[in-house]
């Protein structure tokens, strides 16, 4: 498998990259960590004329604590997030979810911005963004805008990002008391999830409040399980209400009812993980 021929551009600033993207539009693809894009090119599922490599733009990397949010540069690699004390303290859901993302060698190159920009429905990071109520920064030659994760994911690999925009940063609101839980059902560790759940919420006197659970691998996009989360706040932890929130269809991974059962398992285990009780 060899990559198709393309023109390779390596901008050194966001402004330069945005200008190149504006010039080439649809013919160009942005190259982040390349852990999805390069296989796609190898299998010739895409043959872009231009690759714009974001790898040399220094200020797209890094983890910074702001007044009310943790800011993650789009080109921050998974491995940097995994080892970050700031992420472990202020966005522990990400730390909890990262070991489920593929394998070490992939996490050494893959970036959070790449994953959120791709919006694979079975990927962990988009669901974490949704559960955490993250904001996503999109930048073009026209300037930048921030969009809430809930408004960003639109469908299968479909997001609110325009063709001329670059995903440049992610902001995760600080919520010190918040607890987190994560679980995914997969055939083998590191595979894409058959079903997964990322949960955040507060626990007072053993009761969960303000629970947000993002389900992934169930529908065409990560979705907030609002009905099941409300039920969990009243003590129904087994995801009995989940079919009001997600509607997995029969596919190569299993029939619809099996996939719904897997989603329930993921929901229950993520919520019990949040509560700090055993993963029953």
């Amino acid at each position: 498998m060899k990559f198709p021929a393309f023109k390779y551009l390596r901008p050194s600033s966001v402004a330069e990259a945005a200008a190149q993207l504006a010039e080439h539009g649809d013919d160009a693809r942005l190259l982040a960590g390349g852990q999805t894009l390069m296989p796609v090119l190898a299998m010739r599922l895409a043959e872009p004329e231009v690759l714009i490599d974001l790898g040399r733009i220094e200020n797209l990397r890094g983890i910074a604590l702001e007044d009310d949010a943790l800011r993650l540069g789009a080109m921050t690699r998974y491995v940097d997030l995994e080892r970050s004390a700031l992420v472990a303290e202020h966005a522990p859901l990400i730390t909890r979810a990262l070991p489920y993302v593929a394998h070490v060698a992939i996490r050494n190159r893959g970036t959070i911005g790449g994953s959120v920009a791709l919006a694979d429905p079975a990927a962990e990071m988009p669901a974490c963004m949704l559960a955490l109520g993250a904001e996503i920064e999109l930048t073009s030659t026209e300037g930048n805008r921030w969009i809430a994760a809930e408004d960003y994911f639109l469908g299968l690999y479909e997001t609110a990002r325009e063709d001329t925009e670059i995903l440049t940063a992610i902001r995760i609101p600080l919520a010190p008391e918040r607890r987190v839980g994560f679980y995914e059902v997969a055939r083998r560790h590191g595979d894409y999830a058959l079903a997964g759940a990322a949960a955040v919420g507060d626990v007072e006197d053993g009761r969960i409040q303000g629970l947000r659970v993002a389900m992934f691998g169930c529908d065409d996009l990560p979705v907030l399980a609002k009905t099941a989360a409300k039920a969990a706040e009243t003590g129904v932890l087994d995801g009995a209400w989940l079919e009001a929130d997600v509607s997995p269809t029969s596919n190569i991974n299993g029939e619809a009812h099996i996939r719904l059962a897997q989603a329930r398992v993921a929901f229950r285990r993520a919520v019990t993980d949040l509560l700090g009780v055993s993963n029953g």
């Binding site: 498998m1 390069m38 296989p39 299998m43 050494n108 190159r109």
Partner: peptide
């Protein structure tokens, strides 16, 4: 295409897949 790991090399101290890097 990044599945098997046969091409693993060390880049700046980290294991990476040489087939997924230009």
């Amino acid at each position: 295409h990044g599945v098997c790991g046969a091409c693993t090399v060390i880049a700046d101290g980290e294991a990476v897949r040489a087939c997924l890097i230009l």
